[in-house]
Design a protein around this nucleic acid. Sequence first.
DNA 1: TTCCTTATGTTTACACTGTCAAGATAGAGT
DNA 2: ACTCTATCTTGACAGTGTAAACATAAGGAA
Lengths: 208, 208
Amino acid sequence: MKSSVHNDMSASLRTPYHHGDLRAALLAAAEAELARTGIEGFSLRAVAKRAGVSHAAPAHHFGDVKGLLTALAAEGFRRFLATQKAAMAEAPADPKSQLQAAGLGYVRFAAASPALFRLIFSSDRPDFDNPELSVASSDSYEMLRQQVMEVTGRDPATDPEALIDLQGTWAIAHGLADLLAAGRLKTLSALPVAEREAQILRIIGRAL
Amino acid sequence: MKSSVHNDMSASLRTPYHHGDLRAALLAAAEAELARTGIEGFSLRAVAKRAGVSHAAPAHHFGDVKGLLTALAAEGFRRFLATQKAAMAEAPADPKSQLQAAGLGYVRFAAASPALFRLIFSSDRPDFDNPELSVASSDSYEMLRQQVMEVTGRDPATDPEALIDLQGTWAIAHGLADLLAAGRLKTLSALPVAEREAQILRIIGRAL
DNA sequence: TTCCTTATGTTTACACTGTCAAGATAGAGT
DNA sequence: ACTCTATCTTGACAGTGTAAACATAAGGAA
């Protein structure tokens, strides 16, 4: 439930003492700062400055910087999953094509938002025991498990052979994604979009 | 102005003003600190303290923290390559087995030294334009290229099909390594060494 | 309304960080 | 013996995250 944002009678003149929806504004500012500086140059004070509030304001909404990055990581995971589903919607309906498309979405997300990708996969600053983040993370894994189950007809949770299938497809998609985010595949990232994605699909297809 | 109180009667007990081989000691201390705190908690002053020198001493050998991490990354890359070659020495001599063994070494290194692995592959703090680091990095890529060439009979540098082979094998090894370093494959990392490595080889084998 | 309680932001302070400049010390040549 | 240079320390500075005290506004109860 959203607290009714008072009214904006004099809001146009001066910046009001109370922001209205600072939590969302801070998350947006944090994402922008993350994209600008990367996870290793991330600064809480810079986020506050970008949002136009004092440097201590974020503490009331997120506790500390870990809390802010945890919330951002949860949002990142949800968007990560959405990107995969968007790619799946473009692909044929058969399980194998769907799994390949999910991999393409995986890589797309990493290429489009490398800093956010690193935050959710290669950083220990978020608190991955946090319920919201944990759920968002598990949702992604769960979709992968479902997809592998539909392709192989076995459940990776119980069948060791299917688990290897899962880890193999995960590894190749994640490897491509991480190497692209790190800028280590220049011969691939330099290609025009259509050719690049065709090549990504071919690489992913090898492991299936 | 301080009166110089040069008192060497306790010279044997006290640490000498000049270290002797501080550069190497700082690199060792940096690696230990990196393993302790991770790249995101890395502190230059903590490194200096661990080496028993003042906080400004590292500047004379590495310039700034980026210089220290660059030198450490170069050393990391050389050790990374050495780990791969050690794994290859245990394996059969045929090209395919050798390539698989190199992948196993790739993953072994990431599991044994996750922080160092992240420094060389998922950090932008080292200066990858630095000649020493650039050479160490290229050496690793070059061995991969050679191996793929021996397996496929084509040069990835000129043949697009072989390039896909290279990127596919790289991606699956790197994906496994990075996911293990991030602790996302607990069902795999929880296994005893022999079974774990057997499974890793099977996963890598899928992509060949 | 009026008063009180709570939530939301600001200010100030502190310990810690990386970097710089200036001084202290030792080793290496000449 | 003497200077020159590399090495190391000390002190200072701006920037960081966090905590405490304070200021302001919103919501509820009388």
